[in-house]
Design a protein around this nucleic acid. Structure first.
Lengths: 136, 136
DNA sequence: CAGAATCCCATACGATACTG
DNA sequence: CAGTATCGTATGGGATTCTG
């Protein structure tokens, strides 16, 4: 633990300037459905309807919108067959592979710890409010 | 990247069940300001006003709200001195250290690639619309 | 300094209906 | 099947004011 001098701050400046490119891309990748879709696509190319099922709870609107954003950012490739009925496959680009490589540890860590974390949070809520946590 | 299924099918089931603990914690950690505050706190304990400056653009409301959520989840510890004027330090818990360890590679990767990604996205928008990208 | 409380709005998001 | 279009709502989030 540093006894900080009055002139030398132990912590540097801002994390990201507001409105910089990193903020934008960060919002795309870590958006509610962005993470889930990237994680799903990590298992290989998949069709629209598969993605809709695997990202449980997503609406068609958000599926379309999120896939478009990820495609525009170069994380996802869209391949359409000119057949009836239509068939479209979505897959990760190499850039998508790269971002998934750094995203995966986060998702895995959270999957392994989420339960314990929320139990702690509930316990704290009880101690704070002296009222039972709602059971659904 | 299947976290919730144990089948051996090439493209397995859902990523996370809707409304499961992982979704909740994922939303907390990857929220707009959650990421930024965790990244800021990775540099050591800091006071309210420092965090407010480093997470550039955050409002007091969101700073308070996000810190409370992260504290309830056990990622952040809050230490208040009983002095006038008040002094409060925020720091990462060991669990906070753990999540930052998996979060930091993502933030770093995005910082290194964001510029290039958005240039590509703009170029695609031009090709798609045959109209210049709006300049704000 | 470190918040809490209040008001308000933009938009992210969901539900439904329609189409090539 | 793979979307688009439209509408309605919930809430994430900002600005301002007040206080110990």
């Amino acid at each position: 633990m540093t006894v900080s001098s009055s002139t030398n701050s132990p912590v540097p400046g801002g994390i990201f300037p507001a409105g910089c490119p990193s903020r934008t891309v960060l919002d795309h990748v870590t958006s509610k459905w962005g993470i889930l879709l990237l994680a799903a696509l990590a298992d290989g190319p998949q069709r629209w309807s598969q993605l809709r099922r695997r990202a449980e709870g997503i609406s068609e609107k958000m599926l379309a919108q999120t896939l478009k954003t990820l495609e525009a950012d170069g994380f996802v490739r869209r391949d359409a067959w000119p057949v009836i009925p239509p068939r479209v496959d979505y897959s990760l680009t190499s850039r998508g592979d790269d971002v998934v490589a750094v995203l995966k540890p986060l998702v895995t860590w959270i999957a392994e710890h989420a339960e314990e974390i929320l139990v702690d949070a509930s316990a704290q809520a009880i101690l704070r409010d002296q009222t039972p946590v709602p059971v659904h």
